[in-house]
Write a protein that binds this DNA or RNA. Structure first.
Length: 582
RNA sequence: GCCCCUGUAGCUCAGUAGGAUAGAGCAGCGGACUUCUAAUCCGCAGGUCGCAGGUUCGAAUCUUGCCGGGGGCGCCA
């Protein structure tokens, strides 16, 4: 039996220490007969069972032809428990339940919290990850369909950076599609200059929709759109200038939204950036014998992989999405040598990604390509189409969120200044929107309702922020009572079930970051933080801190300080603010 | 027709590598603010984990079939 190699770095100090002990005990009791299993110590399923449990005696019962209980007994008898183990007992069919000493938990927590980033393992050191997310289309407003890619992508971005990866966040803008012919025609024929000055993107959207509808019923109009697109692609100065102004206007607008969301990109390379490389990429596919003509188009056959053909050049000679994506990978691999490229898009693109990943593999690209997809957001009435009109603009959602948060702040007649109140309303409102998204498993679709997206109580962003603010308030008052004292230097006693549960939850932080990032599910992190806050709130409600006797008071304030540290760190990983006062 | 996802409390969702009596939030009912921030906490009620087989000491979790929901399937991205 061997210690799982991931246990040591993955972070939970206590589970690792106990696993090391039990590995040795299993091996002493059964020698090589116990080699088949990977030992794991995990959190106890219920606090009545202790702090940790190990279930690995049970799977061995068959091969060893002994009862699981007898195996567990032999293991515990083989080696004395470490001094920090309070008790280790066998329960049920063969669970090994472990309770540890409070002093040990306190010391392990202090050691973890003293490390940089609260002990998040630096498992990504030396590896580059390119993270491709958000990717809105030029000349269209960002709507609630963009929020998932942006918010989930950004949380992954933050978690991977915390784990030591070199992350390159790249906003792969839709700036080169066939829509530009349609928009140019709309711009030339339907534009309202006043509206453009007032709200450029809405006006561009409007002329696009008008032109698109005209094209659907008017063949000649459609042909003209295609002609304008060809002119643009061939470098016609006038169309080129129009296109550049669309890009500039859109980027300005996007940047405003990203600032509100706290999202930053390292690169803004739209599809146009790779335009010059498309012909070369197709030529390479032909040279490698991967591409062939079919019905006038150039395609890569993927029948051996059980996938439909992938079109890399249309019968009209134009290139499409797959070509751009392949060229993009080649460019990124050549320039940045990433270990991974991760794409965050909606579920409808799964097949496309499987196809072009397969083509990349055929080209000998070994970089790990991963598609993180998420379910579409739907309205209660049913699916909404982004091509129809009934979209909710992202900014409108954010405005509404901030407004609702502001209403609650105003009710609570706080002594804050106007500036502080509006800053706080933004932090809470936008935190609520982000959390509503991040707290769901990405792969499930979200039914969008205002009340859920903007919830300010229960399992919500503000719940986490509120818990944090209350701790900050306690810490402030403590520093007034006991000046010059660093709470984290105080001795923790870890008394009672609530404190113990809280400490155990804090100790799970580093592992949780690792798990959430590797699974590409920020919801794992969100769920962790909610559980942490529930544990804290229960503790806070029933345990006086500042009013307790000094030794207890100091112990509790230390615990509070650690909760604040980890909560702040965790909120940061989700891209949420942690205001010190609410 | 084929592929991917999904079905857990009235509603929205968790459920970590198969483990002990399936958990939260909201909504409902009942409690707790002259006491460290009540955007909070405590309690009650609420479940044939879609249905039927299989695998095993043990299945919400793995497997097969069926039913329901969502998405996709050569020139859109």
């Amino acid at each position: 039996m061997k210690t799982p190699s991931n246990l040591e770095e993955s972070g939970n100090r206590c589970e690792t220490a106990l696993a090391v002990w039990l590995v040795e005990a299993f091996s002493k009791a059964f020698g090589s007969e116990a080699d088949g299993i990977t030992l794991r110590v995990q959190a106890a399923a219920d606090d009545r069972f202790g702090d940790f449990q190990c279930n690995d005696a049970m799977p061995l019962a068959r091969s060893l032809k002994k009862s699981p209980r007898a195996i567990a007994e032999a293991v515990l008898a083989a080696l004395p428990a470490p001094s920090y183990v309070e008790k280790a007992e066998i329960a049920g069919p063969g669970f090994i339940n472990i309770t540890v000493k409070a002093e040990w938990l306190a010391a392990e927590l202090a050691a973890m919290a003293a490390k940089p980033l609260c002990g998040i393992p630096q498992s990504g050191a030396g590896e580059t990850i390119i993270l491709d997310y958000s990717s809105p289309n030029i000349a269209k407003p960002m709507h609630i369909g963009h929020i998932r890619s942006t918010v989930i992508g950004n949380a992954l971005d933050r978690m991977y950076r915390a784990l030591g990866y070199k992350v390159i966040a790249d906003n792969h803008l839709g700036d080169w599609g066939t829509q530009f012919g349609v928009i140019i025609m709309g711009y030339r024929n339907f534009l309202d200059q006043a509206a453009l000055a007032a709200d450029p993107i809405s006006e561009l959207e409007r002329v696009y929709v008008a032109s698109y509808e005209r094209a659907r019923e008017d063949e000649a109009w459609m042909d003209q759109c295609r002609a304008e697109l060809v002119k643009l692609q061939q470098g016609d100065p006038e169309n080129r200038a129009l296109w550049e102004s669309f890009v500039e206007l859109s980027l300005g607008e996007f940047e405003r939204v990203y600032r509100r969301l706290g999202v930053n990109f390292d690169l803004h390379r739209g599809e146009s950036f790779y335009n010059e490389m498309l012909a070369d990429t197709v030529a390479l596919l032909e040279r490698e014998g991967l591409a062939e003509e079919s019905e006038g188009a150039l395609v890569v056959r993927l029948e051996d992989e059980g996938l439909p053909v992938c079109i890399v050049r249309k019968s009209d000679g134009g290139y499409n999405y797959a070509t751009t994506d392949i060229a993009t990978v080649r460019s990124r691999v050549a320039e940045f040598a990433p270990g991974r490229v991760i794409y965050v898009t909606d579920e409808r693109q799964q097949l496309h990604f499987r196809q072009f990943f397969t083509v990349c593999a055929k080209l000998g690209i070994t970089t790990q390509l991963k598609h993180v997809w998420f379910g579409l957001m739907r309205l209660p009435e049913g699916t909404f189409s982004t091509r129809q009109g009934n979209v909710i603009k992202l900014e409108a959602l954010l405005d509404e969120a901030v407004q609702r948060a502001r209403a609650i702040i105003d009710e609570s007649d706080s002594s804050m200044s106007e500036v502080e109140k509006s800053e706080l309303a933004a932090q809470i409102g936008i935190g609520a929107v982000k959390y509503a998204d991040l707290s769901h498993d990405p792969q499930n679709m979200i039914v969008f309702t205002w009340d859920k997206a903007l919830a300010l109580d229960g399992n919500s962003g503000p719940y986490l922020q509120y818990a944090h603010a209350r701790i900050c308030s306690l810490l402030d008052k403590y520093s007034e009572m006991v000046p010059e004292c660093e709470p984290r230097s105080l001795t923790m006693l870890v008394e009672g079930a609530l404190e113990r549960a809280l400490v155990l939850q804090l100790l799970r932080f580093p592992t949780t970051v690792q798990r959430a990032a590797e699974a590409c599910k920020p919801s794992i992190m969100a769920d962790y933080l909610f559980t942490l806050c529930q544990a804290y709130s229960s503790f806070y409600q029933q345990s006086p801190v500042l009013k307790a006797d000094p030794a207890v008071r100091d112990s509790r304030i230390a615990l509070c300080a650690y909760v604040a540290d980890i909560l702040r760190q965790g909120l940061e990983l989700l891209g949420m603010a942690a205001p010190p006062r609410i």
